Amino acid sequence: MTNQEIFDLISRFEDSSLHTLKLSTQDFSIELSRGGAPVSTASAVPSAPAPRPTGGESRPDRNSGPTVKAPLVGTYYAAPAPGQPPFVSVGDRVKKGQPLCLIEAMKMMSEIPAPCDCVIEEVLKADGQLAAFDEPLFRYQPC
């Protein structure tokens, strides 16, 4: 199932009167439920609290400007592999299309590219954190 098909499924679920939806295929499984609706299956995955920006490389005084947002839900990775330096750091000048990070979803790695030539002003996620759909990952200043 492609990311677009998953987004379409979520959108249709939100527009419906259903309280829960569980879809399983040979390759993956997804379960959706509305807030407050009890999930009665024993295999339900507990939801984690929404991640907050970390203080690691971020500068809290910079709270405006364009951001690079997560195009999908998954695990954020700052580097191409464990033990390697991150793709970008605060203050780096990057070119349009240059990889900024990786997001792993369903055992597939997706590179997140720079939207334009820019300077990275703030890194909003810590390595290994869960990234939500449309959640800001980086704050940047176009060049």
Rank of each mutant, 00 (worst) to 15 (best):
P71E: 06
P38W: 02
A44H: 09
P86T: 14
Q84P: 05
S17V: 08
L21V: 00
S40G: 12
S33R: 07
L72P: 04
G36N: 11
T54K: 12
P51S: 07
L23M: 10
P86H: 04
V68H: 00
P46C: 00
Q84R: 14
D8P: 05
Y76W: 07
A79K: 08
N63L: 10
S58E: 08
T25F: 02
E5M: 09
E14M: 12
R34A: 03
L72Y: 00
S47F: 12
A50L: 15
V39M: 01
D15L: 10
I30Y: 00
F28S: 14
R59H: 13
G55P: 03
L9H: 03
S64T: 15
G83A: 05
D92F: 00
S33Y: 08
G36S: 06
T25V: 05
G65Q: 05
A48P: 01
I6R: 03
A79I: 07
R34Q: 03
Y76A: 04
V90Y: 03
N3F: 09
K69N: 13
R52C: 09
A79M: 04
Y77Q: 02
S64M: 10
R12Y: 08
A70D: 01
S17N: 13
G65L: 01
E57G: 15
F87V: 05
P71I: 05
P80A: 13
G55Y: 09
P49G: 00
A48Q: 14
A42D: 12
A79D: 08
V73K: 06
V68S: 04
V68Q: 02
L18P: 02
S64D: 15
K22H: 12
P38Q: 07
S33Q: 06
A50R: 13
G55D: 14
S58C: 08
S89R: 14
V73T: 12
S11D: 13
I30V: 15
I10E: 04
I30F: 06
F87N: 00
G35I: 11
E5H: 09
R59T: 10
D15T: 07
P80R: 10
T25G: 11
D8Y: 06
T20K: 01
V45P: 04
Q4L: 09
S11E: 14
P49E: 07
G55H: 09
S47E: 14
E57T: 05
V88Q: 00
G36I: 03
V73C: 11
S89H: 07
F28P: 05
F7K: 14
G35F: 13
P53Y: 02
V45R: 15
T41N: 08
V90K: 10
R52A: 14
